[in-house]
Amino acid sequence: MAATQVLKSEWTKIRSVASTVWTLSLAAVVTIALGMLISVLSKNDYDNLSREDKLTFDPTFISFAGMSLGQLAMIVFGVLVVSNEYSTGMIRTSLAAVPGRGTFLFSKVLVAALLALVVGLATSFAAFFAGQAMLGSHRAQLGDPGVLRAVIGGGLYMTLIAMFSMGVAAMLRGPMLSLGILMPFFFLISSILGNVSATEKIGRFLPDQAGSRIMQVKAPFDDDTPYGPWGGLAIMVAWTVVALVGGYVVLRRRDA
């Protein structure tokens, strides 16, 4: 069983279903459009900001504001790539063709992650330039310190969110259960935990909060986060690895 054969096969699978196109385009459109909208609002509100807030004004991060919503479409993409196999029964056909379950899962994840990376990077750059255009005189330049890292980091963030979702979907199998857990977790629970002072210290080790640190260029004044941008991304990578290993163990052990 040559891995290249399986990669080719997974590429055919992913490009031949409509859900790939609509989840990824939704992720791009929502991230860019919402980022532009919030950039416009931030520019108009700039004069009302306190002196401190003006000093830590982070035009790069503001242009990524749409990602909190756009990542949900990335989650749907990641979940569907894996759980479609189970919900349609295709998994039996797939595993009969590729009995190596590790080869099967990791080829699938690799192909989907590369696609997510391409879309994520394109989205991130587009969101940055569109957002900066809206911010007018308060805009950041790609050449400013830390900005290029933040923009590339945005693409990595979206990729990792999709990969984390693939791991969770491989563990839970059903799309409804996976989405029912992931969507509220990333949209509500994570931000609640992160904003309540009692749980803030736990909340910032969650994958999305740790990972999104890479998109910040200027940290807030009272920032006591114990990790930097790359440290935060490493935490997110750790979460993703755990989810994928968990998914692999479940796939290996259970009957298809």
């Binding site: 054969q5 399986v6 080719k8 096969s9 997974e10 055919t12 699978k13 031949s16 279903v17 409509a18 859900s19 479609n84 196999e85 349609t88 029964g89 295709m90 998994i91 039996r92 056909t93 797939s94 009969a96 063709a97 590729v98 009995p99």
Partner: peptide, 30 residues
Amino acid sequence: PLKYIGALLDAKAVHGGRSAFHHLLCLAQS
């Protein structure tokens, strides 16, 4: 394995959104 043994288990074990050609193509490529 498809070159040793071919199986029809469940006719519905197909992704409904994929065309017949692509369904077979991804199996062939693997």
